[in-house]
């Protein structure tokens, strides 16, 4: 079996797994509902009087904290619970392909969810003349960021055969990675450990890394950050899965 076909087989199996049950539909529908409600009710998009989608993108990291671990929690925990884990390990597929395939399937569902927010973009274009290239960039980096949260969720999914435990752990870690960028946290850390520590903590936050993209500026370091985040947690994922295999 060639390298790619193994990966593709895993990917296809996982993706159809999502859509075989109502899980993906319910998940995406609730995500869209929450995002819409946040944008219009809490972000008060129409009251801003501006067509830029700032009140829409600003909630992405926070919704990802909850929704991406929820999306990824079944990836490994489900296999462990159902006892298909050992079967999976016995397949002639490399461990890295298993990890990557499962991750990509979840990421695809996230992309699907993000694509369904298209009415928001259309609305902005009906209301006025938004900066569409800047919005496209925000979408792209948001998707990359979603990948980071999914990688965290996938890694913790392999730690427990209980999806709820996996979800809670992943959400806690995802929250730490997000909240580190809050001014509240940054200033507390700064006061306790000095200015350098405050800046350092903020560097590791998805909020800070997503900030420039929301304004239409692509930062190479943000791409590097999310790439490293995905890489690190997928590696952990692989290590933990390998550990379970014994």
């Amino acid at each position: 079996m060639s390298r790619l076909s193994g990966l593709l087989a895993v990917y296809r199996r996982e993706l159809s797994g999502y859509f075989a049950t109502p899980v993906a539909y319910v998940f995406v529908a609730v995500f869209l509902l929450a995002l819409g409600a946040f944008t219009f009710q809490i972000g008060r998009y129409l009251d801003t009087g501006r067509v830029d989608l700032a009140p829409f993108f600003v909630f992405h990291p926070w919704l990802y904290v909850v929704f991406m671990p929820a999306l990824a929690m079944r990836l490994w925990a489900d296999e462990l619970r159902a006892g298909t884990f050992d079967l999976l390990m016995a397949l002639p597929v490399r461990l890295s392909d298993l990890v990557l395939g499962k991750f990509l399937a979840a990421w695809t569902v996230a992309a699907f969810a993000l694509a369904l927010t298209l009415p928001m973009w259309l609305t902005a274009n009906v209301l006025g003349k938004p900066d569409n290239s800047a919005i496209l960039l925000s979408y792209a980096i948001s998707l990359l960021m979603a990948g980071g949260y999914i990688a965290i969720g996938a890694a913790f999914s392999s730690l427990s055969n209980n999806q709820v435990v996996a979800f809670v752990l992943a959400t806690a870690i995802a929250f730490v990675f997000t909240a580190a960028g809050l001014p509240l946290v940054a200033s507390a850390v700064r006061d306790a450990f000095g200015a350098g520590a405050g800046a350092l903590i903020a560097q590791f936050s998805t909020l800070g890394q997503f900030e420039a993209a929301q304004r239409g500026v692509l930062e190479l370091r943000a791409i590097a950050y999310f790439g490293l985040l995905i890489g690190a947690f997928l590696t952990l994922n692989g290590v933990w899965v390998a550990g379970r295999r014994g």
Partner: peptide, 20 residues
């Protein structure tokens, strides 16, 4: 991850592309 983020944050800081 930690080293990579710290290094790229500094090294890649000037690498920015304006999409507006």
């Amino acid at each position: 991850f930690v080293g990579g983020v710290m290094a790229t944050d500094r090294l890649l800081a000037p690498a920015r592309l304006d999409f507006t």
